[in-house]
Write a protein that binds this DNA or RNA. Structure first.
Lengths: 202, 202
DNA sequence: TGATTTATGTATCGAACGATATAGAAAGGA
DNA sequence: TCCTTTCTATATCGTTCGATACATAAATCA
């Protein structure tokens, strides 16, 4: 099963990366196949042969985004010694990532598709599931804090996770509206100002 | 200058209201003229004659949204006696409005258009300006609190306003993802848990 | 009543959409 | 060398997009 036939004339990973940037910047629906073929510098048949269709290409681009960009943010959760530090780092990394000067602002997962019939547009459900997964990651880190004795068992970890996930979602919109890195960092700090109250016994 | 010609066969306000609901639910770009004419129960020529084009119809729908839905939320700011109560009410009203069972979830201003070239899509800039206006309303209420002696002058009102505006933006996404009213209220409470720290002297 | 004005319903416009058919080009296998 | 396989480039498919031309209907004005 060696590679028969004419070899591919483009770098598949590089093309996928370019597609990711376009989807990230414009969202799923606002991105046309013409936008993609122009950015990826390949013809439409090559795109379809390599990635299936627009929806599958988006799914692949999302996977790349999670592995490459999302990792910068979510790796902070397990690294930090305490849940508190984990959340502070998580928000700080979010601010840095969302205001990165050489990339689309905000988060592809939060901004990719918000509207649309969940069933009609598969990308919509894909992103929604990703957001819910992220919220679960936050909850699990809090539950770890409970097991570590850092957080009292009486607190509702899901509620706290939902709050911080909501703040992160909002930061995507605020970043798209032009907020500075300092402003986003300030918002991250403000969210952490609620930590002590949120993690005090109920 | 009396009304000459054949009278309009539809209620313009009711049609605009239906258009608002469609834009609110699907966003600007995902809403087609076919969606609009179906929801408004009028022909395309009647739509164009009455509202100009899609962009102008969206602008009119947004105006209706602000006057009708936004008022429920933003009226809380001047009504409350203190800045703290104003922000608590503002967030509480946001939770209620975003989880209303008989309406699209979340906020039309936050979800209408997030992506897209600001210049190419006028609706994008329109919504961005609306979000920045709302942030300014929050800042002004905080500044009023400073004048009232409720908040120390050393705090950065814009930073606090940005934080709460960001939370509200995030609540739109969280609401679209299916969060319950109780969950949104919990997030609103969590945001208020930061109030004392945020408004303490710097 | 006839002329004018405005709204409606049908049918359709050119452009852009996502997706392909087709033919030719570039590789390995025999 | 010839065949098979795979990829590329051009041209285009049918559909949907936002937006209109056109003829007709329903009102006021003279």
């Amino acid at each position: 099963m060696s590679q028969r036939g004419r070899p591919r004339a483009f770098d598949s990973d590089a093309a996928l990366r370019r597609a990711m940037l376009v989807f990230w910047e414009k969202g799923y629906e606002a991105t046309s196949m013409a936008d993609l073929t122009a950015a990826m510098q390949i013809g439409a048949p090559s795109l379809y042969a390599a990635f299936g269709n627009k929806a599958e290409l988006f799914a692949a681009a999302l996977k790349t985004y999670k592995a490459e960009i999302g990792m910068e943010i979510w790796d902070a959760l397990p690294k930090a010694a305490t849940a508190r530090q984990a959340f502070a780092d998580f928000l700080a990394e979010t601010a840095i990532a969302y205001a990165h000067p050489d990339r689309p602002r905000g988060c592809m997962i939060a901004l990719g598709v918000l509207n649309g019939d969940t069933e009609a547009i598969p990308a919509c459900e894909l992103l929604r599931d990703s957001r819910l997964e992220n919220s679960s990651l936050l909850r699990e880190r809090l539950e770890q804090g409970v097991r570590d004795g850092e957080i009292p068992p009486s607190v509702d970890c899901q509620q706290i996770a939902d709050f911080y996930a909501t703040v992160q979602h909002g930061m995507s919109i605020t970043a798209r509206d032009g907020a500075t890195l300092a402003s986003l960092q300030s918002t991250a700090d403000a969210a952490m100002a609620a930590w002590d109250t949120l993690t005090s016994p109920r």
